[in-house]
Design a protein around this nucleic acid. Sequence first.
DNA 1: TGCCAATGTTTGTGAGACCAACGATAGCGA
DNA 2: TCGCTATCGTTGGTCTCACAAACATTGGCA
Lengths: 153, 153
Amino acid sequence: MNAVPERLTSKPSWLITQLATHARRLAADGQAATGSGAYHYRVLATLQEFGESSQIEIARRGNLDRSDVVAAINELAEEGFVDRTADPADRRRNLVRLTRAGTQQLRRMDRVLDKVQDDLLEPLSPGERATLIRLLTRLLVHHRPDAVGQLSR
Amino acid sequence: MNAVPERLTSKPSWLITQLATHARRLAADGQAATGSGAYHYRVLATLQEFGESSQIEIARRGNLDRSDVVAAINELAEEGFVDRTADPADRRRNLVRLTRAGTQQLRRMDRVLDKVQDDLLEPLSPGERATLIRLLTRLLVHHRPDAVGQLSR
DNA sequence: TGCCAATGTTTGTGAGACCAACGATAGCGA
DNA sequence: TCGCTATCGTTGGTCTCACAAACATTGGCA
């Protein structure tokens, strides 16, 4: 009754894109309560792990377009989660850093996203989860080394 | 230099969504030459495997919104790939069926998408590919049984 | 007969990933 | 030192995918 063409369900690209849509939904549902979204999380995470950065650095490290970084930082700054100041050493750049409130927001989002991972992988055993992560990582390293922190040579 | 926050790369949801973006790009690149897109493929595949259908059936089987089916079928009909006629037995419904040209278009898209699967899984051995497909399918069956042709309750 | 449900359709929204262009500023080679 | 080129932030788009709201037409049914 609810059959889906085998042409679709047999394709890895179908499995991956459909699962990605579901993962995004889980994340969006959880993040709704935090008031920030996926782009905001990438910015906050980048700042936390690498410290004060220019917007272009945030874009490269978080795999974002620099124009999207502008919008995300506008919103984060408005809520007091980041601090944006002109770089005195290079007036083309802004220096962005996490505030205390931003660090707390990141922690909130971390909790939410950790739960998302659990929900997402729920049906798999720990060993299967590790296998899946390993295979997915290999594919991503192969296709988009820059999205996994690999030097693209 | 191109480091990515470990907070991101360690999350399955990151791996899956980033890989999905890449898969969509591969598919879009390949499909550009065919003139049809992902929604069109879902419609054509559904018609081929289940035969003449109403739009609501196409929507349910191809996991599409019925309003998106309207647009896709408009475009497919304009190119002569499908045929849309009012159902004499239920005038609320349209009966949509594949034309000869539509069958050929589906074959073209199949070839493109088969190559996409190969590109996508390239770094994995046949055994690893099977493992990945098995794990992804289990996750999707668990979270969105309707997207894999499973009865949802 | 009168009401509710199903179907197709129109219109719109929001997220995510991009792209092009522009002004200001730096850096560098002649 | 001058002039060219590159970089950075910013603005203002585009496109795809997923989905929600509302409406008219038609069927089914109490």
